[in-house]
Amino acid sequence: MESQSSQLNVEMVLILGTSGMLFLVTSIVLFIYLYQRKLIKKKLEYQEIEDLLKKQELKSAYAMLAGKDKAYREVAEELHDNLGSMLVTLNMLSDTIPQKTDPASLNLIAKKISEVATKATEATRQISHSLHSEALMHFGLASAIHELAGALNESHTISVHVEVQITTELEGHVSLNLYRIIQELVNNTLKHAKAKNLNIDVSEAKGHLNVIFEDDGIGMVNVEEYERGLGLKNIKSRVAKLEGQITMESGLGRGTTCIIDIPL
């Protein structure tokens, strides 16, 4: 009887001890496994973030290179198509001089040469300007618009009033496109509007950039027809690029107002 009881105790100790041991071992293994998994997951997450940052950096670098490449291509096209053809015309005109003897014809050729040379000078200026919008690059949009207005006011052909109120630092492409839009609008006013006064108002409100461009020129009878013109197509394309909206209002003798709204 005593022997049986002793045997039972031994077995009880054995079973309890073994169970405890197995429980301990299981806990250790489980802990190591779970902790290792957690560590690896964390490492993988960090890796993913690092990869993402690297990708973003590469993307920015590519975008910068693509932007530069595009600008160079545009300049090259401009040089070839515009300035190149003008120089060819100049060459042709100068070649015809020895063949002409009468003063009237010579005068006519000289006049043509002068005209083409003026155009070539203007084209050169424009190309140079597109390569270097230095005021815009160094001092921002407000300074660039003020500089543009200053240059126009100095010509005494038109009085330009500028009001720029921007607190947010604009991204490079937004500033550049906006500046080009204003340049184009100024060109149109100078070419067609016969305006005496020009107001350029750039302000920022509720995450939007508003440009109000108005002149007191002759205005237009049909805005839609004007909108189909090449100059405005460029403006519209730039506004669309910035995901903005453009509205034009005009009437004969009432000048022209252009309102542009761009989300920031």
């Binding site: 002793s6 045997q7 031994v10």
Partner: peptide
Amino acid sequence: AGSFFLWLMSSEI
């Protein structure tokens, strides 16, 4: 871990 106690108490059982 499972057989540890068995060997330890083998003389008893």
